[in-house]
Amino acid sequence: MNSARLHAASELPYVRRTTATTEELLAGAFEALLEAGGLEARDVDGLGVASFTLKPDRCIDMAWRLGLNIRWSLDDGHGGASGVNMLRHAIAAIECGHARHIALLAGDVFGPDDFKELAANYNGTTRQYLAPLGIANPNTLFALLTQRHMRKHGLERADYGALAVGQRNWASANPNAVYRSPLSLEDYLAAPRVADPLCIYDCVPVVAGANAILLSHVSALPAGSPAIRIKAIDCNYNFDDQSGDGLTTGLRVISDRLFANAGVRREELDLVSVYDDYPVMALVQLEDLGIVAPGELRSFLNDRVLAGRFPLNTSGGQLSAGQAGAAGGLHGLTEAALQLLGRAGERQLSKADRALVSGYGMVEYRYGMCANAAILERAQ
């Protein structure tokens, strides 16, 4: 990872409805990425794409639409883990000399029936076993998981609300977020329930949007361009063969190794972006990564997250910014990159030198099978 540098990121404003196509949004994110990175389309010789609604097109079709002649391509279908997964492969490609400039794109546009069709036919297991039970919907599965998490840690709904409210406070400074209006803990507790104990603020809003990041070989960076070094990256898939309780992910296996390889201590992180399709999974990841110590979830949520004393998901996360399909897997990386490059606008942290980004997702039967994380550092 000594040769690859992340030096640009872009995100189109997330919207609830649009007449644009998935291809158009991905192209828009790519165009903004080139401008941010100081490159021309002809410079890009590697492309990775994550999308649920680009079908029947794939990465190579997108390359043609963008007019790219590439030496490296990647189609990624890992959902919430796609961003870190693509990043890992792109780093390897640059290290091996397979490409000099790689653009990674992710995005989706869901029509009225697209998301329902995706949820009901997410994979063969969902179609065969879950749909007949009437629970081919992630809200039901993660409501059950939240109940289990509440019992295990002695938490109440207000504790999960602290995360939702804390992230909404960050979203208020993000012009790309769908939900920016103030949200109080009282608002959260009074909100309509979706699947007990989840309310509408516990479930990511489905939106349209696209994200992109740009990696280049260190010797090919535009002159004077700020850049980010990937200090460490690790993944663990099919952690428990779907036989565990869902309250632990593969991040627990890789956590200590990740920090050791990065040469970074947890307290040296300036911001953390964890995949937040539901508050419970954000908390599980924070525990698995060792960022929150056992027995300290309640104090962490109320004394640090709600009080704005811990930079968690500074974009507002998907809970407030929205989940643009596969773009959700790249959302955290985009935000971390913008912060480390000093391009986060009104929400820019005064100190943003090191960040951790995690990915999670791809529910097979009961829980997500994929977990990965990367530690990023502003290059001096």
Rank of each mutant, 00 (worst) to 15 (best):
R378I: 13
L251F: 02
S51K: 00
A4W: 10
L319K: 08
L66P: 08
V44I: 15
R180N: 08
A374V: 14
A321W: 07
D57Y: 12
S51A: 02
L215I: 03
F115R: 13
L289Q: 12
A36R: 11
D76L: 14
L271N: 05
L312I: 11
L349A: 05
I70E: 01
K351T: 12
Q128H: 14
L306R: 12
N139E: 09
I375H: 02
Q128I: 04
L25S: 04
P112H: 11
L330H: 09
R157T: 11
A223P: 05
E335N: 09
N85R: 14
M362T: 13
S225E: 11
N302D: 09
V207C: 14
S243L: 15
G345T: 04
E40I: 03
V274G: 06
F142L: 11
L214W: 05
Y237S: 07
M369A: 13
F310V: 06
G332V: 10
G329D: 04
W72V: 11
S181H: 09
N236T: 07
H153W: 12
M281W: 09
V207N: 03
K231M: 13
T22G: 02
I230C: 15
A355C: 13
F239N: 13
Y367I: 14
E287W: 00
R180S: 01
N174P: 06
E267V: 04
T248V: 15
D303F: 11
S243G: 02
L340G: 07
E364A: 11
R5E: 02
G308F: 04
L26A: 05
L133Q: 09
D256K: 09
D108Y: 01
A293F: 01
D196G: 05
K55Q: 09
L356R: 05
I70H: 13
F310I: 00
P222S: 11
R252F: 05
G295Y: 00
E31G: 07
A374G: 10
D277R: 01
L333M: 06
A208W: 12
C199F: 00
A336L: 09
R100E: 14
P132T: 11
A36C: 00
D353R: 15
D196Y: 10
A136M: 07
L215Y: 10
N123H: 06
G325M: 08
Y237P: 00
R17T: 13
G295D: 13
V194E: 02
R366N: 12
D76W: 02
A171H: 01
T53P: 04
N139C: 12
V206R: 10
R100G: 15
N302M: 01
